[in-house]
Each structure stands twice: as structure tokens, then as C-alpha cells.
Amino acid sequence: MENVLEVKNLQISFKTFFGEVEAVRGITFSVGKKETVAIVGESGCGKSVTAGGIMQLLPMPPAFFKGGEILFNGENLLEKSEKQMQGIRGNKISMVFQDPMTSLNPTMKIGYQIVEGLMKHNKMSREAAIKKSVEMLELVAVPQPEKRINQYPHEFSGGMRQRVMIALAMACNPQLLIADEPTTALDVTVQAQILELMKKLQNQLGMSIILITHDLGIVADMSDRVVVMYAGQILEVGLTHEIFASPKHPYTRKLLASVPRLDMNREERLHSIEGTPPDLYAPPKGCSFYDRCSEAMKICKDNMPGFDERSRTHQSRCWLNHPMAQKRNSMNGRGI
């Protein structure tokens, strides 16, 4: 299966008054055709920057690409001009954002916001574009689409607006959809609907999805593979069931443990991971999780582990998984 997207050793930093912030410190992953890859991690781990970086939507000062490649269908996006990128955005790669209340232009009719992209990328005539946008609204299950294309965002509810966002993103039939926390701002029932919709569209239109989230429940539901990011680095990557069943990295284990479960009894305390992520102005030489890791070893402090490549699909960067590390018992994912 050819990969739609291949990110190789991507490094993105921000030049600030106080120095350089290394937001993304060399990540590598790929997304295959019709595949859904989830990128999880806590706030500030660099997942949104990665998304923005793929689309090159980051403000270029202060952000800058320190190194790496982003191959989209074999072509390096970092070598493309702005004009070329404009041809790709909204067309071949689309994005759906987190907050539907603010992501739509309040003074522009919904219909036009969809039509705009269609007219630009597909060179459609206005009438054709309007027809297509009605179709898209139908697709995302917005009732009375002919009437609603002439309405303004403030006349839609939150869930409806997110549907519109999706319609907007999908209008030109992109190959890759990057969904940055698409349901975080919605309530749970609506969340489920949106996710259903995305899955349906993925099947129908055959696109790949990068799903950025910190909600592990969604990950389990929707993704084929999972990438775990922390402090600008990927700590673990694997098939969804591999990650959930046998997480190889202490961080992943702790993440999974911190998800509240229905079958916990009331006296059990919620598990959280103590401490905070490291300062990215001066990222640690060694493993970035060292300070918070309960299983840390002396070597972890100053040395960054490489990826353990014994499995083709499930890899992690932890000294514990090094062939030379001591075997640990009862390292099953949940329940520590």
C-alpha cells in the first residue's frame, strides 16, 4: 500500500524573544491510503504544530522548519512554493478545526464558504459550485440544504457548524483530511454523530485521516494506527489494538491508566501523571519523559533511546525495550 503521507524526521521550531522553542524535534510517521492515524498526546506535545506544519499554515516567522521532509504522494511539500501549496490546501489535503463556533466566517454565507473552495480548485462555475455545495450539505446530514446555504454561521448550532466545516473540508474530495480535535468542543452525543459521519465519508470517498486528539476513547473507536507524541517527539507508534493491549512505553501506559473507567469503584483515586512536560526552550538531552517516569533508569537521563525496531508495526523509544534491558514482569497495559 502506497503511503499518502510520509513524514521523515520533521523538525519545527519557533524563534521567540527568549530563544528557540523546539516544538517538533524530529518525528517520523506515515499515513497510508484510506487509513486513519491518530496522534495523541497531552497539550503542548506538538501535535497541532505538526498538523499546521504539514499544511504549512504556521506563521512563518516565528515558526521555521528546522529540518526533515514531508512527502505527500512522493513529493516533498517543504520544497513547494506558496502558490503550489495553495493548490494543495483545501484540495488534496484539508483540515477540520477544533472550535466550530469560531472557525467559520461570521459575515459570509455558509454556501459561499463552500463554493469558494470549489470555484478555486475545481474551476467550477458558480451554479455548479452551488449545486455541489448543496450535495455536500446533504452528505453531512444538514437538513434543508437549499435553504441553509444562504444562511450565516450564527444561525447554526455547534454540531451543525462542525458538519458544515466537514462539508467544507471534503468538498474537493481531498486525499488526506487532518482533523485537529474535531469533537473536543462538542457535547458527547454530537461527538458520536460527527465521528460516525467522518467514518462514513472516509468509506465513501476513500480518504486518509490524521486524527489529532487527546481523547483516547475516540482513538479506540476510529483509528487504525496510533502515534504517541510527547515533548515534540514520538515515543510510541503502533496499530491501535497493539497500543491498547500492550503499550510498550511507560508514558503510553500511564496515559491509558489515566482514562477514567466505568467499572472503577468510587473509592479508587483517578490516576494522573505527576509533573509537567519539559521546557522546550532547552529540551533535555536524554529521554524527555525522564522526570515523570516511574521506571526511569540512570541511562535514560542523558541518553535518548532509539526506536526498537523488532516489530514492523509496533515501535517505541524506551531503554526498557532495549534488548539489553532487564526483563520486567507484568507489563501489561492497563491497571498499574
Binding site: M55, L57, E82, M85, Q86, G87, I88, R89, G90, N91, S94, M95, F97, D99, T102, S103, L104, N105, P106, T107, M108, E116, G117, K120, H121, M165, L168, A169
Partner: peptide, 29 residues
């Protein structure tokens, strides 16, 4: 700095259009 500007850009429309049709229209209010 608003989100919908990001959305507009993510649709791949040209900078000029983003500024004129999306930004200015809202900023002028």
C-alpha cells in the same frame, strides 16, 4: 488572529482573497 482566517487559508485560497474577502470584510465592521 481569528480561527476562520485559518480556515480560509486552509481552503487554499490566495492570500489576497483571504485578506480582502475574509479579513477586511470582518475588520471593517
Amino acid at each position: 488572529g481569528q480561527d476562520y482566517i485559518k480556515t480560509a487559508k486552509s481552503k487554499g485560497i490566495s492570500n489576497a482573497t483571504v485578506v480582502l474577502r475574509h479579513a477586511v470584510r470582518n475588520a471593517i465592521l
